[in-house]
Protein backbone atom coordinates (compact mmCIF):
# COMPACT_ATOMS: atom_id res chain seq x y z
CA UNK A 1 0.00 0.00 0.00
CA UNK A 2 2.37 2.70 1.25
CA UNK A 3 6.09 2.03 1.05
CA UNK A 4 8.79 4.43 2.17
CA UNK A 5 12.12 3.24 0.86
CA UNK A 6 15.12 4.71 2.69
CA UNK A 7 13.86 8.29 2.60
CA UNK A 8 16.04 11.10 4.00
CA UNK A 9 15.49 14.80 4.41
CA UNK A 10 17.87 17.41 5.78
CA UNK A 11 16.63 20.94 6.38
CA UNK A 12 18.95 23.93 5.88
CA UNK A 13 21.87 21.83 4.67
CA UNK A 14 25.28 23.45 5.02
CA UNK A 15 24.17 26.01 7.60
CA UNK A 16 24.38 26.15 11.39
CA UNK A 17 20.68 25.27 11.44
CA UNK A 18 21.26 22.04 9.56
CA UNK A 19 18.84 19.42 10.79
CA UNK A 20 18.62 15.85 9.58
CA UNK A 21 14.88 15.36 10.05
CA UNK A 22 14.58 11.97 8.37
CA UNK A 23 17.48 9.55 8.08
CA UNK A 24 17.08 6.49 5.86
CA UNK A 25 13.57 5.87 7.05
CA UNK A 26 11.76 2.84 5.66
CA UNK A 27 8.21 1.78 6.26
CA UNK A 28 5.84 -0.71 4.72
CA UNK A 29 2.16 -0.24 5.39
CA UNK A 30 -0.32 -2.92 4.37
CA UNK A 31 -3.73 -2.19 2.88
CA UNK A 32 -6.17 -1.35 5.67
CA UNK A 33 -3.47 -0.84 8.30
CA UNK A 34 -4.22 1.73 11.00
CA UNK A 35 -0.90 2.57 12.61
CA UNK A 36 -0.37 4.95 15.52
CA UNK A 37 2.93 6.80 15.82
CA UNK A 38 4.61 8.02 19.01
CA UNK A 39 7.93 9.75 19.55
CA UNK A 40 9.56 12.75 21.19
CA UNK A 41 9.32 16.27 19.90
CA UNK A 42 11.49 16.61 16.82
CA UNK A 43 11.57 12.87 16.15
CA UNK A 44 10.41 13.51 12.60
CA UNK A 45 6.78 12.44 12.83
CA UNK A 46 5.31 15.49 11.13
CA UNK A 47 8.23 15.62 8.71
CA UNK A 48 7.48 12.07 7.63
CA UNK A 49 3.82 13.05 7.08
CA UNK A 50 4.84 16.10 5.08
CA UNK A 51 7.17 13.93 2.99
CA UNK A 52 4.32 11.53 2.24
CA UNK A 53 1.86 14.36 1.51
CA UNK A 54 4.37 16.10 -0.74
CA UNK A 55 4.85 19.40 1.14
CA UNK A 56 8.51 18.94 0.18
CA UNK A 57 10.38 16.46 -1.98
CA UNK A 58 12.69 14.06 -0.08
CA UNK A 59 16.45 14.37 -0.62
CA UNK A 60 16.96 10.64 -1.02
CA UNK A 61 14.86 7.52 -1.28
CA UNK A 62 11.49 6.80 -2.85
CA UNK A 63 7.86 6.83 -1.84
CA UNK A 64 5.40 4.37 -3.32
CA UNK A 65 1.64 4.41 -2.97
CA UNK A 66 -0.14 1.36 -4.35
CA UNK A 67 3.08 0.45 -6.17
CA UNK A 68 3.10 3.80 -7.92
CA UNK A 69 6.23 5.91 -7.42
CA UNK A 70 4.97 9.27 -6.10
CA UNK A 71 8.37 10.60 -4.96
CA UNK A 72 8.28 13.59 -7.32
CA UNK A 73 4.52 14.12 -7.53
CA UNK A 74 3.29 17.54 -6.45
CA UNK A 75 1.31 18.04 -3.26
CA UNK A 76 -1.97 18.95 -4.97
CA UNK A 77 -1.73 15.84 -7.16
CA UNK A 78 -1.05 13.54 -4.20
CA UNK A 79 -3.89 15.10 -2.22
CA UNK A 80 -6.35 13.49 -4.61
CA UNK A 81 -5.67 10.21 -2.81
CA UNK A 82 -4.08 11.32 0.47
CA UNK A 83 -6.04 13.06 3.23
CA UNK A 84 -3.98 15.12 5.68
CA UNK A 85 -5.25 16.53 8.99
CA UNK A 86 -3.16 18.82 11.18
CA UNK A 87 -3.11 19.65 14.86
CA UNK A 88 -4.24 23.19 14.04
CA UNK A 89 -7.97 23.03 13.21
CA UNK A 90 -7.64 26.29 11.23
CA UNK A 91 -5.43 24.67 8.61
CA UNK A 92 -7.95 22.42 6.94
CA UNK A 93 -10.78 24.78 6.00
CA UNK A 94 -11.28 28.14 4.29
CA UNK A 95 -12.69 30.42 7.05
CA UNK A 96 -14.52 33.02 4.99
CA UNK A 97 -16.30 30.45 2.86
CA UNK A 98 -19.47 28.69 3.94
CA UNK A 99 -19.67 25.09 5.15
CA UNK A 100 -21.27 23.93 1.92
CA UNK A 101 -18.65 25.72 -0.18
CA UNK A 102 -15.86 24.07 1.79
CA UNK A 103 -17.48 20.71 1.27
CA UNK A 104 -17.88 21.38 -2.43
CA UNK A 105 -14.13 21.99 -2.63
CA UNK A 106 -13.44 18.74 -0.82
CA UNK A 107 -15.72 17.01 -3.29
CA UNK A 108 -13.43 18.23 -6.10
CA UNK A 109 -11.21 15.22 -5.46
CA UNK A 110 -13.89 13.01 -6.89
CA UNK A 111 -14.20 14.89 -10.13
CA UNK A 112 -11.93 13.97 -12.96
CA UNK A 113 -10.04 16.74 -14.76
CA UNK A 114 -11.80 19.89 -15.81
CA UNK A 115 -15.33 18.69 -16.44
CA UNK A 116 -16.64 20.23 -13.22
CA UNK A 117 -14.85 23.58 -13.35
CA UNK A 118 -17.98 25.54 -14.18
CA UNK A 119 -20.57 23.66 -12.20
CA UNK A 120 -22.18 25.27 -9.18
CA UNK A 121 -23.40 23.60 -6.00
CA UNK A 122 -26.58 21.75 -6.97
CA UNK A 123 -29.45 20.86 -4.69
CA UNK A 124 -28.36 17.24 -5.08
CA UNK A 125 -24.92 18.18 -3.74
CA UNK A 126 -26.55 20.05 -0.86
CA UNK A 127 -28.63 17.03 0.08
CA UNK A 128 -25.53 14.88 0.07
CA UNK A 129 -23.55 17.41 2.18
CA UNK A 130 -26.44 17.67 4.64
CA UNK A 131 -26.57 13.92 5.00
CA UNK A 132 -22.82 13.70 5.65
CA UNK A 133 -22.85 16.61 8.11
CA UNK A 134 -25.68 15.02 10.06
CA UNK A 135 -23.38 12.07 10.77
CA UNK A 136 -21.20 14.38 12.88
CA UNK A 137 -24.08 14.99 15.25
CA UNK A 138 -23.02 18.61 15.77
CA UNK A 139 -25.97 20.32 14.14
CA UNK A 140 -23.78 21.60 11.31
CA UNK A 141 -26.31 20.40 8.74
CA UNK A 142 -28.50 23.35 9.67
CA UNK A 143 -25.68 25.89 9.36
CA UNK A 144 -24.53 25.11 5.84
CA UNK A 145 -24.77 28.74 4.71
CA UNK A 146 -22.58 30.00 7.56
CA UNK A 147 -18.88 30.78 7.09
CA UNK A 148 -16.61 28.14 8.61
CA UNK A 149 -14.79 30.88 10.57
CA UNK A 150 -17.77 30.98 12.95
CA UNK A 151 -17.35 27.33 14.00
CA UNK A 152 -15.46 26.19 17.09
CA UNK A 153 -12.12 24.39 16.79
CA UNK A 154 -13.71 21.01 17.40
CA UNK A 155 -16.43 21.61 14.85
CA UNK A 156 -13.86 22.75 12.31
CA UNK A 157 -11.71 19.68 12.91
CA UNK A 158 -14.71 17.37 12.60
CA UNK A 159 -15.62 19.13 9.36
CA UNK A 160 -12.04 18.79 8.11
CA UNK A 161 -12.13 15.08 8.89
CA UNK A 162 -15.37 14.77 6.99
CA UNK A 163 -13.90 16.69 4.05
CA UNK A 164 -10.74 14.57 4.01
CA UNK A 165 -12.73 11.34 3.92
CA UNK A 166 -15.73 12.57 1.90
CA UNK A 167 -14.16 11.06 -1.16
CA UNK A 168 -12.51 7.97 0.34
CA UNK A 169 -8.73 8.53 0.28
CA UNK A 170 -6.24 5.72 -0.19
CA UNK A 171 -4.29 6.99 2.77
CA UNK A 172 -5.24 9.21 5.69
CA UNK A 173 -2.57 11.11 7.65
CA UNK A 174 -3.69 12.32 11.08
CA UNK A 175 -1.08 14.59 12.65
CA UNK A 176 -2.22 14.90 16.29
CA UNK A 177 -5.55 16.04 14.96
CA UNK A 178 -7.24 15.96 18.37
CA UNK A 179 -4.40 17.54 20.38
CA UNK A 180 -5.69 21.11 20.22
CA UNK A 181 -9.24 20.20 21.25
CA UNK A 182 -10.78 20.02 24.71
CA UNK A 183 -10.95 16.45 26.11
CA UNK A 184 -14.64 15.87 25.40
CA UNK A 185 -14.43 17.16 21.83
CA UNK A 186 -11.15 15.30 21.28
CA UNK A 187 -12.86 12.10 22.36
CA UNK A 188 -15.73 12.75 19.98
CA UNK A 189 -13.47 13.51 17.02
CA UNK A 190 -11.42 10.40 17.74
CA UNK A 191 -14.52 8.20 17.90
CA UNK A 192 -15.62 9.70 14.61
CA UNK A 193 -12.20 9.00 13.12
CA UNK A 194 -12.25 5.40 14.25
CA UNK A 195 -15.72 4.75 12.89
CA UNK A 196 -15.03 6.39 9.51
CA UNK A 197 -11.69 4.62 9.10
CA UNK A 198 -13.15 1.25 10.10
CA UNK A 199 -16.26 1.63 7.98
CA UNK A 200 -14.38 2.44 4.78
CA UNK A 201 -11.28 0.39 5.51
CA UNK A 202 -9.01 3.41 4.99
CA UNK A 203 -5.28 2.88 5.47
CA UNK A 204 -4.32 5.35 8.14
CA UNK A 205 -1.35 6.80 10.04
CA UNK A 206 -2.01 8.71 13.26
CA UNK A 207 0.46 10.64 15.39
CA UNK A 208 -0.53 10.77 19.04
CA UNK A 209 0.99 11.75 22.35
CA UNK A 210 -1.40 9.64 24.34
CA UNK A 211 0.32 6.32 25.08
CA UNK A 212 -2.96 4.54 25.83
CA UNK A 213 -4.32 5.71 22.50
CA UNK A 214 -1.14 4.60 20.79
CA UNK A 215 -1.77 1.04 21.94
CA UNK A 216 -5.54 0.92 21.79
CA UNK A 217 -6.36 2.62 18.51
CA UNK A 218 -5.60 0.86 15.26
CA UNK A 219 -3.71 -2.38 14.69
CA UNK A 220 -0.09 -1.30 14.70
CA UNK A 221 2.15 1.01 16.72
CA UNK A 222 5.28 2.74 15.44
CA UNK A 223 7.82 4.61 17.52
CA UNK A 224 10.06 7.25 16.02
CA UNK A 225 13.31 8.78 17.18
CA UNK A 226 15.86 10.98 15.40
CA UNK A 227 14.25 10.60 12.00
CA UNK A 228 13.92 6.83 12.14
CA UNK A 229 11.37 4.23 13.15
CA UNK A 230 12.94 2.57 16.20
CA UNK A 231 10.12 0.25 17.20
CA UNK A 232 7.32 -1.33 15.24
CA UNK A 233 4.76 -3.64 16.75
CA UNK A 234 1.48 -5.27 15.75
CA UNK A 235 -0.73 -8.26 16.49
CA UNK A 236 -0.19 -10.44 19.56
CA UNK A 237 2.94 -8.65 20.72
CA UNK A 238 1.15 -5.30 20.61
CA UNK A 239 -1.88 -6.60 22.45
CA UNK A 240 0.32 -7.62 25.38
CA UNK A 241 2.16 -4.30 25.63
CA UNK A 242 1.42 -1.89 28.47
CA UNK A 243 2.21 1.81 28.52
CA UNK A 244 5.17 1.09 30.81
CA UNK A 245 6.48 -1.48 28.31
CA UNK A 246 6.15 1.06 25.55
CA UNK A 247 8.15 3.65 27.47
CA UNK A 248 10.77 1.00 28.23
CA UNK A 249 10.93 0.08 24.54
CA UNK A 250 11.60 3.69 23.78
CA UNK A 251 14.53 3.74 26.17
CA UNK A 252 15.99 0.68 24.52
CA UNK A 253 15.33 1.92 21.02
CA UNK A 254 16.77 5.37 21.46
CA UNK A 255 19.03 5.11 24.49
CA UNK A 256 17.20 7.91 26.27
CA UNK A 257 13.98 8.69 28.10
CA UNK A 258 10.94 9.76 26.12
CA UNK A 259 11.37 13.48 26.66
CA UNK A 260 7.92 14.69 26.01
CA UNK A 261 6.03 16.54 28.68
CA UNK A 262 2.72 15.95 26.96
CA UNK A 263 3.34 12.22 27.12
CA UNK A 264 3.92 12.41 30.86
CA UNK A 265 0.81 14.46 31.39
CA UNK A 266 -1.49 12.27 29.37
Amino acid sequence: MLRLDNISKTFNPGTVNEKAALTNLSLDLADGDFATIVGSNGAGKSTMFNAIAGTFIVDEGNIYLDDEDITFKKEHVRSRVIGHLFQDPLKGTAPSMTIEENMALAFLRASKASSHLFSRISSKDKARFREQLALLGMGLEDRMKQPVGLLSGGQRQALTLLMATFVTPKLLLLDEHTAALDPATAEKVLELTKSIVAERGITCLMVTHNMHQALEVGNRTLMMNAGKIVFDTAGEERAKLSVADLLEKFKVGSGEELDNDRVLLS
Binding site: A53, E75, A94, S96, E101, A104, L105, A106
Partner: peptide
Protein backbone atom coordinates in the same frame (compact mmCIF):
# COMPACT_ATOMS: atom_id res chain seq x y z
CA UNK B 1 -14.65 28.72 -5.28
CA UNK B 2 -11.16 27.30 -5.76
CA UNK B 3 -9.89 30.81 -6.50
CA UNK B 4 -11.59 32.15 -3.37
CA UNK B 5 -10.13 29.36 -1.26
CA UNK B 6 -6.64 30.09 -2.62
CA UNK B 7 -6.75 33.57 -1.10
CA UNK B 8 -8.45 32.34 2.05
CA UNK B 9 -6.31 29.36 3.05
CA UNK B 10 -3.46 28.39 0.72
CA UNK B 11 -2.50 25.32 2.78
CA UNK B 12 -6.02 23.95 2.61
CA UNK B 13 -6.15 24.45 -1.15
CA UNK B 14 -3.11 22.27 -1.80
CA UNK B 15 -4.46 19.50 0.38
CA UNK B 16 -7.79 19.65 -1.47
CA UNK B 17 -6.16 18.71 -4.76
Amino acid sequence: MSIRATGDNAAMVKSSS
